[in-house]
Simulated assay, not measured.
Amino acid sequence: MTNATMTLPHERPAARAAGLAILAVALAALCLAPFLVYPIFLMKVLCFALFAASFNLLLGYTGLLSFGHAAFFGGASYVTAYTVKVWGLPPELGLLAGVAAAALLGLAIGFLAIRRQGIYFSMITLALSQMFFFFCLQAPFTGGEDGLQGVPRGYALGFVDLSRPLAIYFFVLAVVLIGLFAIWRIVHSPFGSILKSIRENETRATSLGLSVGTYKLAAFVMSAGLAGLAGGLKALVFQFATLTDVAWQMSGEVILMTLLGGIGTIAGPLVGAALVVSLQNYLATSAFPVTVVTGLTFMVCVLLFRRGIVGEIAHRLRRRG
């Protein structure tokens, strides 16, 4: 028996304890954050963190690069905003309506896109996403270029007044944590192991008798639904839904967030989203062009952190261990 084998039972509890300690510190920081930082900014970070994590479920764990994820994010934003404003649904039902709409849209787009692989898959998702963009531009219930404005936040569970900044912050935090836990559970389930095997070698997974197309479509729909959850939350936080949410630039942003943080990691997209949103927020009033600074940041991260920020740190820690 080797030394590595002998120390493995002791290393696993230590690693698990360290992970739980980091999680506890992160949760405590998130609970204290709205008392120190502008809550709207924090909620924007949380929404995009969930969006990037949902995209990472598709790219990082299934190996599918979608250029059209803005369709699910923005589509759910419109549905949530419309159902809450026009139909008068409570916010939690509006969010569920947005998730359902995004999942159905993901089913339709995924059914067509997974028939192709590689860049062909990516371009099909982009084309279908652009078709949905023009639908949102022309549809009468979306408000066109003006979008849906004045969306009421309402009362969560019938008694939590989301018009109060702290109330909606903790509501958003709770929903995002539920979404992130769902992603973690998917990744660490037998279904997640199959997705990883498809990512590593799709041909071998097919030879083992797995219905690769079905698993890829299921991952696509789950990713779309979770992206829709993020989009619905954003509509409630900012109280509007616009064409910006369904534009192709939004798909580019979520790809950038995921790559910066590190694909194939749980925390990577969260770090990437926080970095990009922080740059956009704090450079918006400066003389520096945001896109140029973001591009330079991406170049630096590619050169110094080839696996992304979190991915590179995790890789170096494993090498030292």
Rank of each mutant, 00 (worst) to 15 (best):
A49G: 07
P165L: 03
W184A: 11
I178K: 01
Q130S: 09
L58E: 00
T244P: 01
L105H: 12
L157P: 00
V151F: 06
A108C: 10
G110C: 04
E92F: 14
M250S: 05
G179E: 07
A14N: 02
A102E: 08
T265I: 08
E202Y: 08
S54L: 13
L303S: 11
N56P: 03
G98V: 08
L20Y: 15
H315C: 11
N281H: 15
D161P: 07
A287V: 01
G213C: 09
T142Y: 07
R153A: 14
V172H: 13
A17Y: 13
S163T: 13
R153V: 10
Y82K: 07
L256F: 08
S129R: 06
I124R: 00
R320I: 13
V271Q: 05
A17R: 15
L157M: 15
G179L: 12
V25R: 04
G321I: 02
L64M: 11
Y82A: 13
L283T: 12
F170A: 05
I183D: 09
T242G: 14
L256N: 06
K44V: 06
F41C: 04
L226E: 03
D245I: 00
G68Y: 05
G261Y: 04
P9I: 10
E200Y: 01
A70G: 07
V151S: 06
G272D: 11
L57H: 05
N281P: 03
Y78V: 01
V175C: 11
A21F: 10
G311K: 08
G262A: 10
L50M: 03
G232F: 02
F41K: 04
L128N: 06
A205V: 03
G110R: 01
L317I: 15
L283D: 14
N56Q: 08
R319S: 05
C47A: 13
T297N: 12
A205R: 02
L57N: 03
M299K: 08
F288H: 11
T7V: 09
G63V: 02
G321P: 03
V79E: 12
I124S: 01
V293T: 13
A139Q: 10
A18G: 10
G252L: 11
G268R: 00
V246Y: 11
V212C: 08
E145N: 11
L180M: 09
S251I: 04
L195Y: 02
I309D: 10
V300I: 09
T5A: 12
L226W: 01
V25C: 07
F298N: 07
S77C: 06
A314M: 12
A15S: 13
A113Y: 08
V160L: 15
A14I: 04
L64A: 05
A267H: 06
A71S: 15
V151H: 02
Q239P: 01
G63H: 00
I263R: 10
Q138N: 11
R307K: 15
L93K: 05
L107G: 15
Q117H: 06
L95F: 03
V175G: 05
R12I: 07
V237T: 11
Q280C: 02
A156C: 12
F288N: 05
A26H: 05
